[in-house]
Simulated assay, not measured.
Amino acid sequence: MRNFSTPSLILSVTVSGENNRRVTVFSPDEGIFTATLYGGPKSKMRSLVSPMNSGILYYYRDEVKNQTKITDFDVKNYHLSFRENLFKTYAASFVTEILIKTKCAGSSSECWKIVNGFLDGMELCDENESRLGLIRFLWRYLSLSGCRPQTKICCVCGESLHSEKLNSSSISEKYIYSPFENAFICPSCQNPRAGDFLLSKEAVTYLEAVASLSPKEVRKITVSKTGFFEMKEFVYLLIEQVCGTKLKSLETGTGIL
């Protein structure tokens, strides 16, 4: 039996027995693991160990019985706005499902950085900013998983997709995403095939900015409603492909996410 402590994010809490709770935890050290929280309704730990709370988790592990018990939780971030905004609630569930399905994209420590960066940022932002923040998070997560398309050059001719400045005449110019190449094709090289996905120059330019600029710089960039919905449909499609299945959070959150 050994005692441990680790930075942790509580992903979910479910009933286990009459008074206990089964807790799914995400840690940069251990990835995703489950632990038991003992105690009845009057236990102060019940309010501390709640979904999306993050901080330092204290627990002990009995290797013989294969049991992990939570002993204390020093909460650093409560993310209280998530309980007051439906989009933020569903976005948090969406992120949780992705983490579990992909096992933190194979890198718990790097995953920890971008997940907490998104959640902490969403806590400070309004719903509209959070929606665009979710697009950025998913695009970065696709990179972590090794499945993000490159948005710098045309995969056919090798020319830059961003050689000309974005203006009113080019903003609706369409690039083709080829799932066969996992890359984009410029208008000059296009030969549409089944399964291709069309994205405007604005959308591709923004996604390239997310990949190459600092988060602070990207937050200053504005996006049209058309560009936003294009990117949302696109990154949702790619993230489900990475997960290898339809995501329940997207199905239940239809019209919200």
Results as ranks from 00 to 15, higher is better:
116 N>L: 11
117 G>H: 09
119 L>G: 06
119 L>N: 04
124 L>P: 01
126 D>Q: 02
126 D>Y: 00
127 E>A: 08
127 E>W: 06
127 E>S: 07
129 E>L: 10
129 E>K: 09
131 R>N: 04
132 L>F: 08
133 G>A: 02
134 L>P: 00
135 I>T: 09
136 R>N: 10
138 L>S: 07
139 W>S: 02
139 W>Q: 00
140 R>I: 04
143 S>M: 06
143 S>H: 09
144 L>D: 00
146 G>P: 03
146 G>L: 04
150 Q>S: 10
152 K>W: 14
153 I>Y: 09
153 I>K: 05
155 C>Y: 03
155 C>F: 05
155 C>Q: 08
156 V>N: 06
159 E>R: 13
161 L>M: 10
161 L>S: 02
164 E>N: 12
164 E>P: 08
164 E>Q: 12
164 E>G: 10
166 L>K: 04
166 L>H: 05
168 S>F: 15
169 S>M: 15
169 S>F: 15
173 E>H: 08
174 K>E: 15
175 Y>S: 01
178 S>T: 07
180 F>K: 11
185 I>V: 14
186 C>N: 04
189 C>W: 02
191 N>F: 12
191 N>M: 14
192 P>Q: 04
192 P>K: 03
194 A>F: 13
195 G>R: 04
196 D>F: 09
196 D>V: 01
197 F>S: 07
198 L>A: 13
199 L>W: 01
202 E>Q: 10
202 E>V: 04
203 A>R: 02
204 V>M: 05
204 V>D: 02
204 V>G: 02
204 V>E: 05
207 L>Q: 07
208 E>Y: 14
211 A>D: 11
213 L>F: 14
213 L>R: 15
214 S>V: 09
215 P>G: 06
216 K>D: 14
216 K>L: 13
217 E>M: 09
221 I>Q: 02
222 T>K: 15
223 V>D: 09
223 V>T: 11
225 K>H: 15
227 G>N: 03
228 F>L: 10
229 F>L: 12
230 E>N: 05
230 E>F: 08
231 M>C: 12
232 K>W: 14
232 K>F: 15
233 E>G: 13
234 F>S: 01
235 V>W: 00
237 L>K: 14
237 L>W: 09
